[in-house]
Write a protein that binds this DNA or RNA. Structure first.
Lengths: 348, 348
DNA sequence: CGGTCTAATAAAAACGTTTTATGCGCTTCG
DNA sequence: CGAAGCGCATAAAACGTTTTTATTAGACCG
């Protein structure tokens, strides 16, 4: 039976070998170490590969070699432009070295992170670039025990004994934002955070507190914390209630948001209540996502070299994969305050 | 030698079998058809699996079975919120059925699309959800010949003979935008397009022209086309020059953009030249991305059920994978005009 | 009690590669 | 001139599963 529904049996390395009059091993060599095979044979085999439209079966390949060449990229939120920008960097760098990247989305959900890591283990991925959902690194160590190396992204607090990491100095970023607000005369500042199980949030908050401390202001008095869940615009918008809570007297003079998504959502929520930045309240974001420049007023924010972050992470991973003398490394980038229209001096 | 650098040999199904005192085949059955094995044996094997922390090797698995269970999702631009929203829908639906999703990014680049499809072929993916970069479907047919089925997303012009597709009616969307602009009195409208090799762009433009036709206005006179490359904000901003080109006399009264990214970029570019929507010019976007509501003025745009689009596509793919009586299907959703502040009546 | 049926497991044969050991025919050199 | 070396190719043995076929031990039945 050869109905049109039938998929004709896939052509394998053996079919190619037979047709080209060589052994399967030679075909494999043409594919993997062309320099080991004579010019003439190589050309002949390559032609047959084309004729038969042979496509390598990566299951067989990696079963034998114990390895895949695909790289996992595990992000916290695929809808967040920060992560997609980072992933562009990772992809470009990986593509340059011939590694395919598969993007996995944990959606800030530990369960899903776990499933994704397991998938990488089952598939014997070559390595991974990971932005972890929380402090619990045990699953990551588990992965490494299984021979799958990773580079951590956006986690500054992890020892280089465990693995490489690439990070932007979050304390410095929080500090820059804090200093900016202090210099504008703000003394009642709310930190609008995602879940504090994210190290980024905690450290940015600490930076803010340090800035106040520097200025002789007691952070415990000056800083109020509003903790939402995920770092998205919906949560920012929803948090406006709690941010403004406590009556006009206790209304913050400024809000520093853990990322731009929250900040943009917050701006919208404020607008719906007839409040506007910077007149009624100053707002600072974090990440300098493309959209931060598109809203009106432009969002003052702490910029991160997103694309470069991704490239650097991938470069470290490639080093670990290919360089025998590799040593784990912590790379720290500097954030950069981008002042736009959403912040202004405090008017009493 | 068992230095700490050494990865202890991975435990396989055979180790589990030995320790549990059963045959490898039985372990496989515990994993894949637990109902075929006696309760007591099952429990014993499961315990050993835990003890040894056995992780299935998917290479071996799929080599034997000829199939993987992972689903490819190929998007046009991973930084575009439209696609990430769609991908959430795909992921959620797939997760519900136990299929892992790997996200691949073609970046509107035919080369990269080709590489991604090849990767799916090499890995014998179970199936794919694809947003194609252009009209050339030959690579897709090639994939299907190899036994990998797909569902097309955002392509309304493909016959159901080839495969399932899910789409929002782009002509209807262009029409809605056009009618809106016409009703506001605009008669000189520029269509700011991505590359016209994207069917979406062409069809939306046609919808716009139909709207003018309906109103007794000659589209050839009224509509000017500005074609950029990729559908991102940078291109929108850059296009402002050409959009305004031709002097104030020929300046369009309104611009209809092929997607929100272009529109948002355009708004920014206009702002930098001291022009504002809707006072100086009306602007309409497409997609109703979250950010469209966050800019000021809010962006009038044609909304698409992004998340539902993704779910529907994945549902069709699951049907094709699991339902023996599957028939290809074209699903067409209806777009919805969302009027915000970026459009206003034309003032002579 | 011999026969048939069933449930549970075992044994062994794939799946498509890569890799290792080996062979063969030449050239080169001591 | 024999040995060693080299370039190229082959044969065969893995890799870790799944699946098909066979085997066993009871249970059931006439």
């Amino acid at each position: 039976m050869t109905s049109s529904e039938d998929v004709r049996r896939a052509v394998g390395i053996n079919d190619v070998a037979a047709r080209a009059g060589v052994s399967p091993g030679t075909v494999s060599n043409v594919l993997n170490r062309p320099e080991r095979v004579a010019e003439a044979t190589r050309l002949r085999v390559e032609q047959v590969i084309d004729e038969l439209d042979y496509v390598r079966n990566s299951s067989g390949r990696s079963l034998r070699s114990g390895r895949t060449d695909s790289i996992g990229l595990l992000v916290l939120d695929v809808t967040n432009p920060f992560f997609t920008k980072v992933s562009e960097g990772v992809e470009d760098e990986a593509a340059g070295a011939g590694y395919p990247v598969v993007l996995l989305n944990s959606a800030e959900n530990p369960q899903r992170q776990r499933r994704s890591l397991r998938l990488l283990a089952e598939q014997r991925a070559a390595g991974a670039v990971i932005m972890p959902v929380d402090n619990d690194l045990s699953d990551l160590l588990w992965l490494r025990e299984r021979g799958i190396p990773w580079v951590l992204l956006d986690r500054g607090d992890v020892s280089a004994d465990l693995g490489c990491s690439v990070c932007v100095d979050n304390h410095e970023g929080g500090l820059a934002a804090g200093r900016h607000l202090v210099s504008l005369g703000h003394e009642r500042i709310t930190f609008l955070s995602g879940t504090l199980s994210l190290e980024q949030c905690r450290t940015r908050l600490n930076g803010l507190r340090t800035a106040l401390d520097e200025a002789g202001i007691d952070p415990d008095d000056a800083v109020r914390l509003v903790e939402t869940g995920k770092l998205n615009a919906a949560n920012g918008e929803q948090a406006v209630e709690e941010v403004l809570g406590g009556g006009p007297k206790r209304r913050p003079q400024a809000v520093f948001c853990a990322n731009d998504q929250l900040a943009l959502g917050l701006l919208k929520g404020l607008g719906e209540r007839g409040l506007h930045a910077p007149g009624d309240i100053s707002v600072v974001g974090y990440d300098d996502v493309d959209f931060a420049a598109l809203v009106h007023p432009g969002l003052t924010t702490v910029g991160q070299p997103k694309y470069e972050l991704g490239r650097a992470a991938m470069r470290l991973l490639l080093s670990e994969l290919n360089d025998p003398g590799h040593r784990h490394e912590r790379m720290l980038f500097a954030p950069e305050l981008v002042v736009r229209g959403s912040t202004a001096p405090y008017r009493t």
